[in-house]
C-alpha cells in the first residue's frame, strides 16, 4: 500500500514539515483505509461483458448483414473484433481499478479515492451527509455486496462499490450519527 499514501489522511502525504514531523498529524479515531470487497470484480466483469457484449452483437449483426446481404468482402466481419478487444482489455484493467479503489472514514470526513489514469479523490464532511443509499443487483446479492451511495443536500457525492452488507450497515450508522450542519 504505497501508491495511495498521498490520498489518505492517516498515512500522511510524503510531505515532511520543517520541524521534521509528518503532516497531517491526525491519529485519533482514525479508521483504517478500506477497500471494496474483492468480489466486486465479479459485478464489474458482468457489467463490462453485458455492455461490450451488446456492442459486439450489434457490430457483428451489422457486418454480417453487410457480408451476406450486400456482398461485402468477408474480412469486414473482422470489425466486430474491435469491441471484443475493448471488452478483453477492460476486463484486465478491472483488477487495477479495484486495487486503486479505497475509502476511509476519518473523524470528520469520509474520503474516497479511485482511478488510475486520472486519480480522483473525494472528501465529504460527515456532518453534511444527508442520507446514504444502498443499491445491489442480483450478482451483488449473491456475494452479499451493496453499492453505498452518499448524498449531501447539494449533490450525490459518490458511490462506494461493493461493500459487504454488514460493513455497509455499520458505515451507514457511522455516517448518519453525529451532529448535522445546516
Amino acid at each position: 500500500m504505497c501508491w495511495h499514501d498521498f490520498d489518505h489522511a492517516n498515512t500522511g502525504s510524503a510531505m515532511l514539515l520543517r520541524n521534521g514531523s509528518r503532516y497531517p498529524p491526525y491519529t485519533k479515531d482514525m479508521n483504517e483505509i478500506e477497500q471494496p470487497d474483492a468480489n466486486v470484480l465479479y459485478i464489474w466483469r458482468v457489467e463490462v461483458l453485458t455492455s461490450w457484449g451488446i456492442v459486439f452483437l450489434i457490430v457483428l449483426g451489422a457486418t454480417a448483414s453487410l457480408v451476406f446481404g450486400a456482398g461485402a468482402p468477408f474480412w469486414v466481419i473482422g470489425f466486430s473484433a474491435i469491441p471484443l478487444g475493448f471488452a478483453v482489455s477492460s476486463l484486465f484493467l478491472l483488477k487495477l481499478r479495484w486495487e486503486r479503489w479505497t475509502f476511509q472514514l476519518t473523524p470528520h470526513t469520509l474520503e474516497m479515492s479511485h482511478g488510475w489514469f486520472i486519480r480522483h479523490r473525494r472528501v465529504v464532511s460527515r456532518n453534511r451527509i444527508q442520507h446514504v443509499d444502498f443499491n445491489s443487483g442480483p450478482i451483488g446479492r449473491k456475494f452479499d455486496l451493496v453499492h453505498v451511495i452518499v448524498h449531501t443536500a447539494g449533490s450525490t457525492v459518490g458511490t462506494i462499490p461493493g461493500v459487504k452488507s454488514e460493513r455497509a450497515e455499520r458505515l451507514r450508522t457511522e455516517l448518519m450519527s453525529g451532529p448535522k450542519a445546516l
Partner: peptide, 13 residues
Amino acid sequence: MENVAISQPFWWK
C-alpha cells in the same frame, strides 16, 4: 464547504 473533489491526471503527479 460540503465536499471537495480533487482529480489528478497521472502525468501531473
